[in-house]
């Protein structure tokens, strides 16, 4: 299991290649990359705040739970903080398993939980001012399916 919380950018392709190389024999690798979206066309940057210490603990707990629920060869979680420009990558998860269903389900579980159980907060700065991104009820509801 590898959990990284960092301000620096990362290259999803390189991360995925390295992850895939070390889970030799897994049979299935699933990855998801989250990208800064500019719905208004006016976004200057997204600033991600987090709670150092708790963030790592929360991500490790979520990843450990995924490993208990599904048969996984390995899990990778990378999440950035600080200022991010539109189209920059925010985070990625990758899962490896013997068969694809475990890898897909575990990746979805990780995404659902780290959306509303990992202490990150997003602020959008645009030409029209700045505002905190509000949590969606649907994100909380998504947890009930697990």
């Amino acid at each position: 299991m590898e959990i990284r919380v960092q301000s620096e950018t990362f290259l999803p392709g390189e991360e995925l290649d390295a992850f895939t190389a070390r889970v030799d024999g897994a049979g299935a690798v699933v990855s998801f990359t989250g990208i800064v979206r500019d719905d208004s066309g006016a976004l200057a940057e997204m600033v991600i705040e987090h709670y150092p210490g708790m963030t790592e603990r929360a991500l490790e707990k979520i990843a450990a739970e995924a490993c208990e629920r599904w048969s996984l060869a390995d899990v990778l979680v990378i999440h950035r903080f600080g200022p991010l420009a539109p189209n920059e990558q925010i985070m990625m998860v990758a899962t490896a398993s013997r068969h694809r269903k475990d890898a897909f389900d575990a990746a979805e579980f990780l995404m659902d939980y780290l959306k509303s159980r990992a202490p990150f907060w997003k602020k959008e700065r645009s030409r029209n001012g700045e505002s905190w991104v509000a949590a969606k009820d649907s994100d909380e509801d998504a947890l009930t399916r697990w």
Binding site: I90, P119, W121, A135
Partner: peptide, 29 residues
Amino acid sequence: VAVDQELTDFDAPLAGAREVAFFPPMTGG
């Protein structure tokens, strides 16, 4: 609210607590 970096609720006791954090609902991912 989190007490000693674990998410909890407002009824949580503070006995032995070193750190309490208050924040809005999280928006990771």
